[in-house]
């Protein structure tokens, strides 16, 4: 009863290893196929969602930042809901960046040396090693920028993973064996606390996705059905916004109480980062704002 989240610097590697681990464990797979369902909910083409998972708004001129953030929040909400079923291997939907604080979710990063990746790219695209090397470097920079903009986390940093395997040194068969052995450790068993954390994350993500349909700059915390929403706003719009948020969030399954904080800046000292963090210790937070994106991009 665990969750294995696999990510890699190569999509093919992620897919192959996720399938092998899922087969060996008899687990279900959660991957980019969820985008079909998310696309129906958002009323967009699944290709747009794929692009949102790949690119930051600055590159995608046709996708404004508010839409980009909305699409990501919809993907996040759907994936978190599916992860609640347990016994799942997840890849390709950036779950390693938003499944935070769930002790029974084991995050695995599979890396291969840039020389090997460049050689494989050169062969695949029929280009020189120099061009392939540059492509690999650019790709790494792009992923780093994307993960920082979307979730404020550098996905190329090994410290965010529970297990990092270098496929230049460890054969795929050995890597599958290592992952299966590691997920068998007691520490990755679900406990009441971790199951609740995942459930709270899923509710917070669902609330945020619903709110981002019509608003922007939203952060959400959830615990045991109580939801706290932080939103940017000032003056007269405070009451109106608060009322609208309570109405939308209150209709979502699992939400029993909604508290709204409309602030001029939801990431400064007056916002959630200091007083509310201490008021609600350990509450999972869902949502990056435009302010965070600007910070990450700089």
């Amino acid at each position: 009863m665990s969750i294995i989240i696999i990510s890699s610097d190569s999509r093919n590697v992620e897919e192959e290893m996720a399938k092998r681990v899922a087969d060996a464990k008899g687990f279900d797979i959660v991957d980019c196929r969820v985008l079909e369902d998310v696309a129906k909910d958002c009323n967009v083409d699944p290709g747009i969602l794929e692009k949102a998972l790949e690119n930051t708004p600055s590159i995608l001129k046709k996708m404004p930042q508010a839409r980009w953030r909305y699409y990501l929040s919809c993907i996040e909400a759907e994936v978190l809901e599916r992860l609640r079923r347990d016994n799942v291997v997840c890849w390709g939907v950036a779950a390693h960046l938003y499944v935070i604080g769930v002790s029974h979710a084991m995050k695995v990063r599979l890396i291969s040396g840039s020389a090997r990746r460049a050689a494989s790219i050169a062969e695949l695209q029929g280009t020189s090693m120099n061009i392939a090397r540059k492509w690999v470097d650019d790709e790494e920079k792009r992923r780093k920028k994307w993960s920082l903009s979307a979730y404020g986390i550098d996905e190329t940093s090994p410290s965010i993973y529970d297990l990092v395997i270098n496929l230049d040194q460890i054969d795929p068969d050995e890597a599958v064996g290592t992952i299966i052995e590691a997920v068998g450790y007691r520490k990755f068993r679900p406990v009441t606390y971790s199951v609740k954390c995942l459930s709270d994350l899923a509710i917070a993500a669902r609330v945020r996705a619903e709110l981002l349909r019509s608003m922007k700059d939203i952060r959400v915390q959830a615990r045991d059905g109580t939801v706290i929403v932080f939103v940017k706003g000032s003056g007269r719009e405070k009451v109106k916004k608060s009322r609208a948020i309570k109405e939308i969030a209150g209709k979502i399954d699992g939400v029993s109480f909604v508290e709204v904080h409309v602030k001029r800046n939801i990431t400064d000292a007056e916002g959630m980062e200091s007083p509310d963090r201490s008021r609600y210790p350990g509450w999972p937070v869902i949502g990056k704002t435009s302010h965070d994106v600007d910070k990450a991009a700089n």
Partner: peptide
């Protein structure tokens, strides 16, 4: 004071 680390 629950955290992932303490739970694990």
């Amino acid at each position: 004071y629950a955290t992932v680390e303490v739970a694990r």
